[in-house]
């Protein structure tokens, strides 16, 4: 089945629309990082990185990097006015103490009860967890940005995660390439979907039941290519 879908940038754009002015935000490595590019006009979020910086901005120009000034993905960053440095225990007090407003993460699987699997897919290789298990329990709002299905077409939204868990019942909202879906009382509730896709097709690409309230919005993102 060939279905229309949002690009990664468009998924990130949609997630950015829900970040309020003045929010303190942590973005996971990879697709979530794109969210920072699409802050709506007139709003300013303050970005947090686990390794001890609040208020960082874009990457510096090539050749201008200062490798003592990096983010959790080990990429060079710049500072915005009002930035601050702090040690790792303070950084994770911001996370685990419930001070962060929003954390946006990637996912291998999200279950209908809000369980997240995003750190390893099996028992082979070198396991690495970083700060994901901390972030899912700290931020006031924890959301996922992801393709709706895996590269080989399998659902990433499932009844129960089969990959090792990052956290239990921690995800509130999922922004996918096809839909915006909330986790409410142990089930997926559809909030928005691409107008081009039918409910039946969306359900067939989703590994758990989708509750559809009376009003389901159109998921429309600007052309960002």
């Amino acid at each position: 089945m060939s279905v229309p879908k949002l690009t990664s940038a468009q998924v990130a754009w949609r997630a950015a629309q829900d970040i309020e002015d003045g929010a303190y935000v942590n973005l996971g490595i990879g697709l979530p990082e794109l969210v920072a590019r699409f802050q709506p006009e007139g709003r300013q979020a303050v970005f947090h990185t686990e390794n001890g910086v609040l208020g960082f901005g874009e990457a510096p120009a090539t050749g201008e990097e200062d490798w003592d000034l990096i983010n959790a993905g080990k990429k060079a960053i710049t500072l915005k006015p009002g930035a601050s440095f702090f040690h790792h225990a303070d950084s994770f007090a911001m996370v685990r103490g419930g001070h962060l407003d929003v954390a946006i993460l990637g996912a291998y699987q999200v279950a209908q009860n809000g369980d997240l699997a995003n750190w390893r897919v099996g028992s082979k290789g070198v396991p690495a967890v970083g700060g994901a298990m901390d972030l899912v329990h700290g931020a006031k709002r924890v959301a996922v940005v992801t393709d709706h299905v895996t590269k080989d077409g399998k659902p990433k939204l499932v009844e129960e995660c089969t990959f090792p868990l990052t956290g239990k019942e921690c995800i509130g909202r999922v922004y996918t390439s096809l839909a915006v879906i909330d986790v409410v009382d142990g089930r997926f509730v559809l909030r928005e979907k691409l107008p081009e896709i039918t409910l039946e097709d969306l359900q067939s690409l989703t590994g758990a039941g989708l509750a559809t309230p009376d009003h389901v919005g159109d998921l429309v993102a600007p052309d960002l290519s």
Binding site: S91, R96, V126, V129
Partner: peptide, 24 residues
């Protein structure tokens, strides 16, 4: 690390980053 880990020549205690900081 990877070569020694896969050859079982080095141990690993994997700790979530915030837990690592707080344990220290």
């Amino acid at each position: 690390f990877t070569e020694k880990y896969l050859a079982d020549e080095i141990g690993l205690e994997l700790v979530p980053q915030g837990t690592l900081a707080e344990r220290i």
